[in-house]
Amino acid sequence: MSLTLSLENAVVRRRGKAILGPIDISLEELHFTIVLGPNGSGKTTLLRVLHGVERLSGGTLSLSKPGEHARRAQAYVFQSPIMLRRSVRANLAYPLQLLGCPKAEIEAKVATWARRISLGDALERPAPRLSGGEKQKLALARALIRDPEVLFLDEPCANLDGRSTREIETLLLEAHAQGTRVIMTTHDLGQAKRLASDVIFLLNGAVHDAGLAESFFERPNTAQAQAFLRGDIVE
């Protein structure tokens, strides 16, 4: 049984302003969930709250496994990639070192993942000096290297060219096929359609619509969702 997360009556307030909620969602089945919504609708906040890096102002987050295990079973790729001031190799090795993995295993995994993101020849380069796209790929590989049960991705393909986007999508679909539950935000509707098995549509901090991908994209329930899919301004 892999990890499941659910939010009940969750609210996030910052500086007296409600920026998310109240929200009830449950991430149970092994879906590939895409979170959609305009800028500032609360996508990042929702992901951060689910992952536990942002605290709730009200409501509860429940995990199907005890705390320590649940935290280890998750990985998060932040909207702007965070690079350790170390080499590419050291960045990839870091999450495994934290777990105390044996050296040989770390080396093997690092080599594999570096190759998968086409950074096999860049292992000794300082990660903060990589290009934006290379950093995004490295952040993804560093998240996947621990084989997470739940993977959060906040716009992992923003600013990437077509080829890099495909590379990342392939990696994500692979991970999903091997049993990783993915929850990801994107502003690329084409990508959303390619990847999503279900969709959460946020508007002004609330879940405006949610459901299986086909029905959301074919027959959106609300006028706002229809407008959003057409690329119109939604309020």
């Binding site: 965070i82 350790l84 870091y94």
Partner: peptide, 15 residues
């Protein structure tokens, strides 16, 4: 400065 840069990552990795 370093802590604010690393904060989210280190929390996320459950250090």
């Amino acid at each position: 400065e370093l802590w604010s840069e690393y904060h989210d990552l280190l929390i996320s990795l459950n250090t």
